[in-house]
Amino acid sequence: MPGSSLWLVPPPDHPLSAILTNLISSTLPSEFPSEAASSPRVTPHFFSPHMTLTSDISPSVYGSDPQAWLDSIPLPFADSVKVRFGKVKSQEVFYRRCYISVGFEGVKDIAGVARARGVFREEDQNGEKTKQWLERWRAEFGPHVSLM
């Protein structure tokens, strides 16, 4: 995937931050030690807990001041973003080896804004391209928090 991604991350002092970090960096890797792995695809990779809002953001969008670009995005108020965890799932796809599904309705607005501003720069989150992308994202990939 060329470009950058925009993530939704729990605040460092939120209880979920420690729980998810422990699952990603310790609990799950101990269940799948790399020397017992049958394929490099199951070797643990360590990353911060997050839900990807969008990807493929060209560096030309945020230029030399990514923080200024982020600050210019009219993100929804925090109380309107509802990360509702679903089931723990697994697929034979690298980025969905083990993940927790997230309810679409609670994050669609923030994901729509992220996609509209990061990729479809000529429209807002209610634009036709963004609406189509949101439905495709929901059906094909869906919001989730990767664990492994």
Rank of each mutant, 00 (worst) to 15 (best):
S146M: 03
E105L: 06
T130N: 07
G63T: 09
I110Y: 00
K89F: 04
D124T: 03
L70Q: 06
F77M: 04
C98Q: 14
F104M: 08
H14N: 13
P74K: 14
H50K: 08
S90F: 14
P33A: 03
A68N: 12
L53D: 00
G103F: 00
A139F: 14
W7E: 08
W137Q: 11
G3R: 15
Y99K: 01
H144W: 03
D79N: 14
G3L: 01
W137I: 06
V61D: 02
L28P: 01
G118Q: 03
A116F: 02
F77A: 11
E123I: 00
N22C: 10
A78P: 05
G3S: 06
V119T: 01
G86E: 02
F46N: 03
H144C: 07
K108L: 02
N22V: 00
G103R: 07
P44Y: 15
F32Q: 06
R138G: 02
K87H: 13
K82W: 04
I100Q: 08
H14S: 10
P11L: 13
L23C: 09
R84W: 06
V83C: 06
P66H: 05
W7M: 08
H45A: 13
P74F: 08
A18I: 01
C98H: 13
A111I: 07
A111F: 03
K89L: 12
T43Y: 11
E140M: 12
M1D: 07
D79Y: 15
Q67W: 09
F46V: 10
G63R: 01
A139K: 14
P44G: 08
R84V: 15
F141N: 06
S34P: 05
R97S: 07
A139Q: 14
E122S: 13
L53N: 05
V42P: 06
L147N: 05
K89H: 10
S5R: 01
P33I: 07
G127D: 05
R84Q: 13
V102T: 07
L23A: 12
P29V: 12
I110L: 04
F46Y: 13
V93P: 10
D109R: 14
E92G: 14
T52C: 12
S48K: 14
E128I: 12
P33E: 05
S90M: 09
F120I: 02
R84F: 05
E135I: 13
G63Y: 12
R136V: 06
F85V: 15
S80P: 02
V113P: 00
D71L: 04
I24R: 04
F104V: 07
S55A: 15
V9N: 07
V88W: 00
R121I: 13
S55M: 11
A139E: 15
T52D: 10
Y62M: 10
T54P: 01
I73P: 09
W133V: 02
S60C: 07
G142D: 03
Q125V: 09
Q125R: 10
R84C: 12
N126F: 10
G103I: 00
K108R: 15
G3T: 07
A37H: 11
S26R: 15
E92L: 14
P49E: 11
P15Y: 11
I100G: 12
V113D: 00
